[in-house]
């Protein structure tokens, strides 16, 4: 149902795209970026909750939200690159602070899996991953501030593109697209949580059938948290 809302936005959005076809990528790119950033920060907040409560579900939430945000971040980098090619004729421009910051944030979060994977004890994995998520979550806004400052220093005018200066119709579409993207993200998080939960229940039941003992019923090591 929520994805339905998102699809509707997709069909509605082209109506307003009066600045050429490529401009439409704006409705995907920017909301995706904003949602991914919120996802990263949310991952950090969930990690704080994990360290406070030590309830695995918080670690799981943190994991899922970072997981999906990284996927979105890849989308942001790809769409951003296409947009850059279309408007400036180059696939990559270093003076677009958003894009550069995103690359740095993406590189940082890409280490999340190696970090998890190279810790064997699940509890330790969750704890270290949480510390990582908090540090990285705090790093995201700081990094954006730093990179933006670097660019503003040389090209003062590159800054304001997002919120201001949009005609109301485009603004509305943008807003709907943003909400749609947010809902998509929320749905995916829910879906992913449910699927992880089901997998875990299945494994627990199978173990019970096999006679309660805990050894070596694993289907291989995984970096994902378990409930």
């Amino acid at each position: 149902m929520l994805t339905g809302a998102f699809a509707m936005v997709f069909f509605y959005a082209p109506l307003d795209a009066d600045q050429g076809f490529v401009q439409k990528i704006f409705y995907v790119h920017v909301p995706m970026a904003i949602v991914a950033l919120i996802g990263f920060v949310a991952g950090g907040i969930c990690a704080v909750m994990y360290l406070r409560t030590r309830a695995t579900k918080w670690d799981m939430r943190s994991y899922v939200s970072i997981h999906l945000s990284v996927i979105l971040a890849v989308g942001v980098l790809v769409t951003g690159s296409i947009w850059a090619r279309a408007s400036w004729g180059q696939w990559w421009v270093w003076d677009e602070p958003m894009l550069v910051s995103f690359l740095i944030v993406f590189l940082l979060y890409a280490t999340y899996w190696p970090l998890r994977f190279s810790l064997e004890d699940k509890e330790k994995q969750a704890r270290y991953a949480s510390v990582f998520a908090i540090v990285a979550g705090a790093f995201v806004p700081l990094n954006f501030a730093a990179v933006r400052m670097a660019e503003a220093y040389i090209h003062p005018q590159t800054g304001a593109t997002v919120a201001g200066g949009l005609p109301p119709k485009m603004g509305l579409t943008f807003l709907v697209a943003l909400i749609g993207m947010g809902l998509l993200f929320a749905t995916l998080v829910k879906y992913e949580m449910a699927s992880k939960h089901a997998t875990f229940r299945l494994r627990a039941l199978r173990r019970k059938l096999a006679g309660d003992d805990d050894d070596l019923m694993l289907s291989g090591r995984s970096a994902a948290p378990q409930l």
Partner: peptide, 20 residues
Amino acid sequence: IQTRARDLIVPLLALPLLVP
């Protein structure tokens, strides 16, 4: 320090964090 791939994880984490 507690991870198996310590020498890999350190630069991968430190470089982006130290960009600013």
